[in-house]
């Protein structure tokens, strides 16, 4: 299944992905208008920071998702065909158990007691807006093998660049 992957070394923490995600999940789909909507749209991706790197994180669509087991309303399910962890807003009873159990803390409280929100991989988009918004290519959308290949390529190029710089 296609997923969003992160090249941690490339993330500069500009949070363009957050803005792109919030715009995508707004009513107007326009930055200038989205920031004036009520309630304000919520970004499903969040740039977090460990000791050295910034890392954009969103729903990992886990093979064994704790949120699915935790949901008391049966509103979250693992789609066997696509591998997606699907969240059905309509079924959400706002208990936010999913928010508590998510090991990556990527499910967010809805504003003003709205249903919880999480990354849906923007099914209708060819490439999710967060990935498109990344100015450094830290985010990648595709199959795991494709990402591996890309990383391999980047590693090799990196080694070459390092040689150039020291040589």
């Amino acid at each position: 299944m296609k997923r969003i992957f992160v090249d941690e070394e490339r993330c500069l923490g500009c949070r363009s992905c957050e803005i792109a995600c919030a715009i995508k999940h707004s009513h107007s789909n326009k930055l200038e208008k989205a920031i004036r909507e009520q309630p304000l749209p919520i970004s499903r991706i969040r740039v977090r920071k460990d000791e050295n790197n910034a890392i954009p994180l969103q729903c990992r669509h886990c093979p064994e998702p704790s949120c699915v087991y935790a949901c008391i309303a049966g509103g979250i399910r693992k789609d066997e065909k696509t591998g997606l962890v699907v969240f059905e807003e309509k079924k959400c009873v706002r208990c936010y158990s999913c928010v508590m159990v998510c090991p990556f803390a990527v499910i967010k409280l809805g504003k003003e007691e709205q249903p919880a929100v999480k990354c849906d991989l923007c099914q209708e988009e060819e490439i999710p807006p967060c990935v498109r918004a990344c100015p450094t290519g830290a985010l990648f959308f595709g199959e795991a093998e494709e990402f591996q290949e890309l990383m391999e390529k980047r590693r090799k190029r990196g080694e070459k660049d390092a040689l150039l710089n020291t040589g």
Partner: peptide, 10 residues
């Protein structure tokens, strides 16, 4: 350059 940084735009 697209998409450009939303923080900068605003």
């Amino acid at each position: 350059q697209l998409p450009q940084c939303g923080f900068g735009i605003l």
